[in-house]
Design a protein around this nucleic acid. Structure first.
Length: 556
RNA sequence: GCGCCCGUAGCUCAGCUGGAUAGAGCAUCGGCCUUCUAAGCCGAGGGUCCCAGGUUCGAGUCCUGGCGGGCGUGCCA
């Protein structure tokens, strides 16, 4: 690729100035008048060398003669080097895209190493809500981006199948169960009121009949708890499948107790000498690792706080060989980050382990009003309800199109719109339109061109689109590194916009001479080559985000 | 009080390692359908990038101090 040759040449030239380690950029300028690629290297060197940037740029240009694929170099503005590529080098990008096809956009950054992405990790105490939906979309897309960057990704879902919340759930189910058997009973303080609890009680009754009537023994509660957890896990599973998200492993909290990890973690922490007893509780000196205050591991009543299994759980990740772990969590959990890391550091793990992506909450708006309704959960809208309403792809995309750390306002009106105003449809239509060209070409007996002469692609718009397609791998690399799927959304929307413009300006209605399917074979094949490259990029981009790329959209 | 995140067009938001004239969608206004899907395209208006300092050749981006909003700050999960 010309970009790599230019980058190498710049690095070498910088070395001749005695500044081989200078940081500079080489990227596509916003304005096509500024060439196909531009570098700020002269500006970066100027502060080091204490010389005027334009002067340095002139000398650099003299050393950059004869890079293959480069037509000319201009110096502009305060000292930018603007590279204009040869027509053939521009066109070659399209051939490279065609050749790479399904693999176009992949990079080898991960070098086949293993990484775990933990996400959703909802407790089985209710249906998945929209916060989980955002997290499911985010975690899955981050995992996918990492796969495109040559990481071997393990998708994991952790859930608390024991503890106070689960006991409250079981107690709530018990109340509904008693009510079904004709008894008076009231959902306890802090219990769960959603309609789903009644459904669980009903399925429990259908299974066991009245065997546990008026029975609040441990065995009865245990049976209800297991039934409720099983039912809710199954429901969450269905919702996630409907949403198109799958996990490699589900890790239950109880396993940490049954396999002795929690006990071992207490022992290991004690051995560090960083623990102490105060007010009858066992504490860990997490302040030694930057936490704001020390944390209780074991309460004075002898039961562990959630902090302990959290540390034990993350030790299990390490022990399973994951040196790279990304935890996707709601930002309401950010208070746990420091203490978990501190606990792990106490046990000798590195300071930044694990990595966190924290996302803000989701609100839904329709007609400018916030929507709070949920039949099933009794409060906020569930993921299943949203997917039912707008479809999995639209929901996914909307969850992904904002930076994780920004609050997300889900605009239901826009989500339900099936025109190009809706960014999801905009991208899908761009793909479908391009596919349609090949369908029509086939009908006329014109094959998909390979290695076509791309010389005729000389319009400003075509040049811009080609440069855009060339950048796709960089965007994926950057999105993966930043754990930021919204970068891909942004890229796809802009690319789709260019594709739509190009398609439309060449519409036979207005300017038949710019149409793709013209009689002139050279022109036609050049344009079909560009269309094919655009098709590949849009399809691959949608694939990264876990969205379908339809070849045809049904007209309503 | 302390910690983390956010503050960019009327609205929702992008803006990479500090780079050229701060961008997109929605909304508003004006054009374009006998032909590859007009579910579209072209164009216009719209900005003290929360405020004040600082660093720099250059700051929406980095630093300091404010202001406003969200979240956290339990022997809750």
């Amino acid at each position: 690729m010309p970009a790599e040759r230019i980058s190498d040449a710049l690095r070498q030239a910088a070395g001749e100035f005695g500044a081989a380690d200078v940081r500079f950029r080489l990227d596509r300028p916003k304005d096509t008048d500024h060439g196909d690629l531009a570098s700020n290297v002269a500006l970066a060197l100027s502060s080091r060398l204490r010389r005027a940037p334009r002067e340095i740029a002139l000398e650099l240009r003299a050393r950059l003669e004869g890079i293959r694929g480069v037509d000319r170099i201009e110096i502009a503005g305060p000292g930018f080097l603007n590279f204009f590529l040869e027509e053939s080098a521009v066109g070659r990008v399209l051939h490279e895209i065609q050749q790479a096809d399904l693999a176009y956009g992949r990079n080898s950054g991960g070098r086949g190493r293993e990484i775990m992405v933990e996400f959703v990790s909802a407790n089985p105490t209710g249906p998945l809500h929209l916060g989980h939906g955002r997290q499911a979309a985010l975690g899955d897309a981050i995992a996918s981006l990492l796969e495109w960057s040559a990481w071997r990704v393990h998708r994991e879902f952790y859930f608390n199948d024991a503890g106070a919340q689960i006991e409250r759930l079981a107690a709530s189910v018990r109340v509904r169960y008693q009510q079904l058997l004709g008894h008076e009973a009231v959902v306890p303080e802090g219990g769960y009121h959603g309609a789903y609890v009644v459904d669980i009680a009903r399925s429990f009754r259908d299974k066991v009949g009245d065997r546990y009537e008026n029975d609040d023994s441990d065995a009865a509660m245990d049976a209800m708890r297991r039934h409720a957890v099983g039912a809710l896990r199954a429901e969450q599973e269905r919702d996630l499948a409907e949403f198109g998200v799958r996990f490699d492993e589900y890790y239950p909290e109880t396993r940490l107790y049954t396999d002795g990890r929690v006990a071992a973690t207490i022992q290991d922490l004690d051995n560090t000498g960083l623990t102490y007893v105060k007010d009858g509780a066992a504490w860990l000196r997490t302040t030694a690792f930057g936490d704001q205050k020390d944390r209780v591991m074991v309460k004075s009543d002898g039961s562990p706080t959630y902090f302990l299994p959290d540390v034990a759980y993350h030790m299990s990740k390490w022990d399973r060989g994951f040196r790279e772990v990304v935890n996707v969590q709601g930002s309401d959990h950010h208070g746990t980050v420091d203490r978990v890391r501190a606990g792990l550091q106490a046990l000798g793990r590195p300071a930044g382990y694990p990595e966190y992506v924290l996302h803000q909450m989701v609100t839904v708006e329709q007609g400018g009003e916030e929507v709070r309704f949920s039949k099933r959960a009794g409060s906020y809208m569930t993921l299943a309800e949203l997917v039912e309403e707008v479809g999995a792809d639209v929901a996914r995309y909307f969850f992904l199109m904002r930076r994780p750390e920004a609050h997300l306002t889900f605009d239901l009106d826009l989500a339900l719109d099936e025109s190009d105003k809706n960014p999801v449809y905009k991208v899908k239509y761009a793909h479908a339109r391009v596919c349609r060209l090949f369908e029509l070409a086939r009908e006329r007996g014109w094959a998909r061109p390979r290695d076509a002469d791309t010389g005729p692609l000389d319009s400003r718009l075509e040049r811009e689109l080609i440069n855009r397609l060339r950048e796709f791998p960089d965007f994926l690399r950057r999105a993966a590194a930043a754990r930021a799927p919204h970068v891909v959304c942004d890229y796809l929307e802009r690319t789709a916009g260019l594709v739509n413009s190009w398609y439309q300006t060449g519409h036979p209605t207005r300017s038949p001479e710019r149409a793709v399917l013209v009689a002139d074979e050279r022109l036609r094949n050049a344009r079909l080559t560009l269309a094919d490259a655009a098709r590949i990029v849009l399809r691959n981009g949608l694939a990264v985000l876990g969205l379908e790329a339809p070849e045809r959209m049904v007209r309503l």
